[in-house]
Amino acid sequence: MLAFSIRRLFQALLVMIVVALIAFTLFRFVGDPVNQMVGVETTPEQREALRERLGLNDAVIVQFARFILNAAQFDFGTSYQFKQPVAEMIGKRLPATLELSVVSAIFAVLVGIPMGVYTGLNRDSFLSKVFLSASLVGISLPTFFIGILLIFIFSVNLQWLPSFGRGEVVQIGWWSTGLLTWSGIKALVLPAITLGLFQMTLIMRLVRSEMLEVIRTDYIKFARARGLPNRTVNYRHALKNTLVPVITITGLQLGTIIAFAIITETVFQWPGMGLLFLQSVQNVDIPIMAAYLMLIAFLFVLINFVVDLLYFYVDPRLRTERAIK
């Protein structure tokens, strides 16, 4: 287990360095950063001085090393457009995106798994068919449309929930949370559902097909032959055997949710990273884009690492080192 963790850690490092290289190349090849920073009337001498000051005249490898060293200390330079440190800007917006993503992932798991179990066990029931048809809608409708639809129903017509923003937030250290105020929670409902709906239907369908497979196995038959109650057979013996693929997909999807919260954040004017990223793309604000790239890569690597550790927790067959001979 320890050897495995260390091995994975090295792989993770490798991935991060490759991503860093890509992020770094962004600076070099997407236009001259000096052009982005100075006005038209700057003299060539001034430009050259700026180049020297920014270290752009050093060897490429030295620049790359400097980029990595800075990135390791969460220093991604200064935004061209806002003239603020990028790390600080992202830090301000990260909590909003993470809260939205995690809440919508929890929603997807908590609703998707029971629905999957139900539809897997009661294949032919009316409710299963309703769930399945509804999930088809969830999978095929684009996110922005679902968001607008929800806003139309719950904000415009029923006026139960706000249609934009985060509501009131509470500051805990550098982290701003909307989970502690009533208006913050209300503001979270619609975007979380919009963002999580696709993952929910995905998890439901995955759990369903896994359940269909598992309930045919001998150990489930044997569990029934031992007279165990249905609840124990279905939720203890069967569900646990469906979890490995579910964990994989949920992990990957969590990464995707965070990376692509952009659309939902735009529809709901959610002050998260997605919105920041969109603005930075419009203004060719490369430090922000590079930092965003690094951050998302880091989150993916982290999530995958956690997923791998969860495998060990769920499936004892993977813990080979501890086998009794």
Partner: peptide
């Protein structure tokens, strides 16, 4: 009745036991 009054043994012991418990 199952388990309590009638016990059952299946063909393949490799698949009769739940691997995760």
């Amino acid at each position: 009745v199952r388990g309590k009054r009638i016990g059952m043994i299946f063909q393949d012991p490799l698949t009769s036991l739940n691997p995760l418990f």
